[in-house]
Computed example of a mutant assay.
Amino acid sequence: MSNISSIIKMIDMAATQKNYKEVENLISVLDISDQHGIHSLLKETTIKVITENKDKINIAYSVKEHIIGFHFYKLSWSDDMLDQLIKIYKEERYLALESRVISAIKSDEIIVSQLNKLESIFSSKEFIKQIESWKKRNCLA
Rank of each mutant, 00 (worst) to 15 (best):
134 W>H: 04
51 T>I: 03
43 K>H: 14
76 S>E: 14
22 E>K: 13
43 K>T: 13
55 D>L: 09
137 R>M: 01
41 L>F: 15
78 S>N: 02
106 K>P: 05
120 S>P: 01
136 K>G: 04
136 K>A: 10
60 A>N: 10
8 I>S: 00
1 M>D: 10
141 A>S: 14
14 A>Q: 11
82 L>R: 07
96 A>T: 08
64 K>M: 07
133 S>F: 12
54 K>R: 14
135 K>T: 03
73 Y>R: 13
37 G>L: 15
58 N>Q: 10
40 S>D: 12
31 D>Y: 15
35 Q>K: 13
94 Y>I: 02
55 D>V: 07
28 S>D: 08
24 E>W: 08
9 K>P: 04
25 N>I: 09
25 N>C: 11
110 I>V: 13
105 I>S: 03
105 I>N: 02
95 L>I: 07
15 A>F: 02
139 C>Q: 10
65 E>Y: 04
32 I>M: 15
120 S>K: 11
34 D>R: 09
66 H>K: 15
50 I>Y: 02
34 D>Y: 15
67 I>Q: 00
139 C>D: 09
42 L>G: 00
17 Q>R: 15
12 D>K: 12
78 S>K: 05
64 K>Q: 07
58 N>P: 04
55 D>N: 14
59 I>R: 04
132 E>A: 12
32 I>A: 15
123 S>R: 09
45 T>W: 15
115 L>D: 00
94 Y>V: 04
81 M>W: 03
44 E>P: 07
104 A>T: 01
121 I>Y: 00
52 E>I: 09
120 S>H: 06
122 F>M: 08
52 E>S: 05
15 A>P: 01
21 K>P: 10
141 A>Q: 12
112 V>G: 08
57 I>S: 03
48 K>M: 06
23 V>F: 02
1 M>F: 12
64 K>E: 04
108 D>S: 10
130 Q>Y: 01
71 H>G: 05
69 G>T: 09
11 I>Y: 01
39 H>I: 03
19 N>Q: 11
96 A>R: 07
38 I>T: 05
69 G>Q: 04
61 Y>C: 08
124 S>H: 08
69 G>I: 06
8 I>V: 13
22 E>W: 06
16 T>C: 14
133 S>E: 14
137 R>D: 06
77 W>R: 08
73 Y>C: 05
82 L>K: 09
132 E>H: 13
69 G>R: 03
86 I>K: 04
10 M>R: 13
34 D>A: 11
77 W>S: 05
116 N>V: 10
34 D>Q: 15
92 E>L: 04
17 Q>H: 14
104 A>F: 00
94 Y>L: 04
79 D>G: 13
128 I>S: 11
133 S>R: 15
